[in-house]
């Protein structure tokens, strides 16, 4: 377990900004407790400092996870968000997409979101913007990237893809072995 290097921090924050924009400061400056990012075996964990300090007594090979996992650095140095970051992304998301009940399961099985399944979209979502997907009851389901801006979405035919799938709650079941 170690703090992130400057490069790593930059890559991570660039990625996060795509989803939560300037709300990223809320992750760092929390009113309750200081939190920090820590790297452990390529994975980035977001954890309160008090827990982090206690975790220093656990050996490197024995530490499996702490706090919330945000994702991992690939071998090429890119950062890949994991579904485990969803609660925090959903809390601070700038652009949101709500899917109708009939679109819930297709998305949770890993499919892109088509126009017909869209219930609501945040106004002025630009193209290729990270968005968090909710169902109509405001339960976060996953996140992805918008394929079109809100304006263009109106023009797409019902079967056209409007949000590219990146990660969804179904991965807890599908990818349990790969994720953790």
């Amino acid at each position: 377990m170690r703090p992130l290097t400057d490069d790593e921090t930059k890559v991570l924050f660039e990625k996060l900004t795509k989803y939560i924009g300037r709300n990223i400061v809320h992750l760092i400056d929390r009113p309750d407790e200081p939190y920090c990012f820590r790297l452990q075996k390529d994975r980035v964990y977001y954890v309160s400092e008090s827990i982090m300090r206690k975790a220093t007594s656990v050996g490197r090979h024995n530490l499996i996870s702490l706090g919330t996992c945000f994702g991992k650095f690939t071998k090429t140095g890119k950062f890949r968000m994991h579904i485990t970051a969803l609660p925090l992304l959903a809390q601070y998301a700038k652009y949101k997409v709500w899917v109708k009940p009939n679109g819930e399961m297709p998305f949770l099985y890993g499919n892109h979101i088509v126009k017909a399944h869209i219930g609501r979209v945040t106004e002025d979502t630009p193209e290729h913007q990270g968005v968090v997907i909710f169902n109509m009851a405001d339960v976060p389901l996953g996140f992805g990237v918008s394929a079109r801006s809100t304006v263009d979405m109106r023009k797409v035919d019902p079967t056209g893809i409007v949000v590219f799938h990146q990660s969804d709650n179904g991965e807890y079941l599908r990818e349990e072995d790969a994720l953790f």
Partner: peptide, 20 residues
Amino acid sequence: EKALVANIHRLGISNTLVCN
């Protein structure tokens, strides 16, 4: 422990430290 970590994250729990 994979299942353990998965369950912890799925349930949105952030106060854990998982060790082996």
